[in-house]
């Protein structure tokens, strides 16, 4: 019976259920976004122009590539190519770090213009701008937090693969880590057009 030895499908199911909770967590924010965008369409439109589309696009592509690399590392470990798998996990973590660096500069630029939650400048701009940037910082911030968690998770996966705790016939954990990483990507796929592309 499945209790005696490990249950890969059960473990994957656990990961998926956890992903659902994350989707619902962001779901609450998407509801908020939908409501305030409906109430302040013009302001959201104008505020969105403040965001840097090229950086956003580059970051989107970075995340997409990182998603592909982690998926390939799962393929690699199944083909018993340990080195390649390790390299791909490392690549994913590095891409994640690049994403965060970009994000840092992006946020920094906004702060320099006096745009941050609770700032006096922002309060003068009006309701729509306060809410747009409130949501922007809150949602991208929470997303960035998930990136950091994802990096830690993948860091563990790297060590496990290195120590042969995860091998070609026991890789479910790596797949789960990958699922988490794809979730982070998935959320960004929606954040990007909702914040950057409503000009």
């Amino acid at each position: 019976m499945s209790q005696v030895h490990r249950d890969d499908i059960g473990s994957k199911m656990g990961m998926w259920l956890f992903i659902f909770t994350e989707l619902l967590l962001f779901g609450g924010l998407f509801i908020t976004y939908a409501v305030y965008r409906y109430l302040h369409p013009e302001a959201f439109h104008l505020a969105s122009q403040e965001l840097d589309v090229p950086i956003g696009t580059i970051n989107t592509i970075i995340l997409l590539i990182s998603s592909a690399t982690i998926a390939m590392s799962v393929t690699a470990i199944q083909q018993k190519k340990k080195k390649l798998s390790l390299g791909l996990i490392a690549a994913t973590i590095i891409l994640a770090a690049v994403f965060l660096v970009n994000k840092y500069f992006e946020w920094g630029a906004k702060f320099d213009h006096g745009i941050f939650p609770g700032s006096e400048y922002l309060d003068q701009l009006g309701y729509g701008d306060v809410l747009f940037f409130g949501l922007y910082f809150f949602m991208t911030g929470l997303h960035a937090f998930h990136i950091i968690i994802g990096m830690v998770v993948l860091g563990f996966m790297y060590v496990y693969v290195k120590n042969d705790r995860l091998t070609h016939d026991n890789f479910q954990l790596l797949e789960n880590g990958g699922l988490y990483w794809h979730l982070v990507d998935l959320i960004w796929i929606f954040l990007f057009p909702l914040f950057y592309l409503i000009a």
């Binding site: 890969d8 696009t57 590539i65 199944q78």
Partner: peptide, 28 residues
């Protein structure tokens, strides 16, 4: 021990999907 044979997704397929995703991003 695994209950069923696990499907291995080829690199080509993954890279192909990545290509589609990037094109769609640029399109949007």
């Amino acid at each position: 021990m695994a209950e069923e044979k696990h499907h291995i997704i080829s690199y080509q397929k993954l890279l192909g999907v990545l290509g589609i995703l990037i094109v769609l991003t640029l399109l949007s």
